[in-house]
Design a binder for these strands. Sequence first.
DNA 1: AATAAATACTTGACAAAGTCAAGTATTTAT
DNA 2: ATAAATACTTGACTTTGTCAAGTATTTATT
Lengths: 146, 146
Amino acid sequence: MPAQSHDINAIRKFNRFYTNVIGLVNDHILHSPYSLAEVRVLYEVKHTRNCTARQIMRAVTIDEGYLSRILNRFVQRGFVKRTKSRRDRREYFLTLTKSGEAKFARLNDASSKSVQAMVKHLSPLELRQLLTKMDGIQHILSKERS
Amino acid sequence: MPAQSHDINAIRKFNRFYTNVIGLVNDHILHSPYSLAEVRVLYEVKHTRNCTARQIMRAVTIDEGYLSRILNRFVQRGFVKRTKSRRDRREYFLTLTKSGEAKFARLNDASSKSVQAMVKHLSPLELRQLLTKMDGIQHILSKERS
DNA sequence: AATAAATACTTGACAAAGTCAAGTATTTAT
DNA sequence: ATAAATACTTGACTTTGTCAAGTATTTATT
């Protein structure tokens, strides 16, 4: 169903708008000692069961070698622990150490604060509407492959 | 009005989701010989009246020196023309040359195609709903400073 | 079982992207 | 007239990201 160019333009306008929103929200990370990629990796390690480098690559689009080095740094700094898989000894399971958890928690709080700031002026109704619309967009765009 | 943490989490989830959407849509640019920053600069030169480097910096968050070099490259490749302002001889007005316009048009078409692909499977109703929700989000988040 | 192909990850060499601070020219404020 | 601010440039640098080759191990093929 080919959308009219004016619809496409509206979507592109939203994309530009939301790119800026995300930029503002991510600003605290840019001013932190970690890159966006690093934070996303930490997030995946935290939230993925039996996390391996492969799994992270599936979730985040990132170069294999680059990821390897990011993980090395995290291991060196003591945030992430690698344990060789028994089933397949090419791969490692990745977990957060205690201090990795703490580091993640701090980054996470900062991110939440940042999002909090973005909606703090909204009325309860507006907030509810915002959430509904976000949910709707995810719903519509998720069944992309039909 | 402090939002509940579960609302904040829902927004963050949407942010992650839409970061990926934007990533997919921008993929063609990543595989083009231009960087995202360069394309945004070209966009600003195209759409800003009496465009100067300063104006671009206002629209796009970008380092002054980096921008200067991007503009230099565009001038060298003949996409952008600098004309010294009479009113203030420190600044230059930036315009697209004929070939800059052509280059921009091609990048622009590719971006549209990319967005087109993202919604091509949607029914007319879904598309209409998507646009309404996008518009609503912009509306809600735009009156941020109240 | 032996060989080939595929997979998970690492490493070296490099290129691109982005940052920082100092410098030039010009304009505006004191 | 002098100082401060503004617009832009440049050099030196760091970070970020990419590419391709390499190692170890597992899976598929004959």
